[in-house]
Amino acid sequence: MNRRRRSLGGAALALALSVSPLFAADGAMPDTAKRIKVAMVPKLVGLSVFKANEQGAIAEAKDLNIDFLYTGPVTASAQGQVDVFNSLIARKFDVITTTSNNPTQLAPSLERAMKAGIKVVAYDSDVAPQARDFFIQNTSYPAFGKALVESVIKYAGPDAKIAILSSTPDATIQNEWIGAVKSYLAATYPKVQIVATEYGQSSPSQSLTAGLNILQAHPDVTGIIAPDGAAVVGAAAAIEKLGKTGKVFTTGASNPDAVRQYVKSGVIKETPLWDEVKEGRLVLYVARLAADGALKDNDTFTAPGLGTYEVKDKVIVFSEPLVFDASNIDQYKF
């Protein structure tokens, strides 16, 4: 997996370049003369986080002369996504952008797309590196792991007993984050104990049940790290139902709409994510650059209104974690 951070130099460059965002002399520029077809394929249609990406992408498509299509499978399965990819190949799309249900199973289909001259831009959850032209990583894994830990340990204390509530045992991105959580804990808060790891299968009801069970079976748990949209909602609902608000704290990776009520009631003090709408815009911007052949494997570019980004070995880190709390959550609607 690619773990990288933007260097300090990159940040300085970003600042310098963002002064003249539209006509930056340096870095890749899109050529919007030719109209192109770009598809965005989420893990499944019907989840708000992916819908937020779509919202940003639609806005960006207008400016970039792009025919935009948001389409995906009805179940979060590789088979569903592959079927959609195959149809996009047959329909001669110029760019396929996707967040993968799993990194390995999608690779052959996306490699066929690349062979057919289609550019592939992965975002959110990566595919195997040989099966995409670029990958837009939400945030770096260590940074997100740190944000997850801090947003619970700050309130639960440096010697807390905590639990992890994830989606499934083999979820790639969740496992990366959990790994980052564990290494950050070991380095910074060695007294914190992880007493249970449960899985909610990305189902709100199973996550709720798992959350209730964790809290009942381990009454001494004071923090739940739930790095999955359904899991954090389940954990928060469990804390609220048991009347443990203010005694147990949870955090996760969820869109603000889904956790707004829990952030306001104090069940969740802080929860990190990133700006999904903005990320959707960046995805389309990179798609345009890729279609124009304007982006090299190692490069920099400035997207108007988004900022300056560095491409390192085909990977673009979108942003630092964006931590929602009671004071800022109402600024974000997705």
């Binding site: 499944l44 019907g46 990305s202 189902s203 709100p204 359904a230």
Partner: peptide, 11 residues
């Protein structure tokens, strides 16, 4: 649960 998604029930 206060929540429902497209996979409620079938999931």
């Amino acid at each position: 649960t206060g929540s429902a998604t497209v996979t409620t029930g079938t999931g």
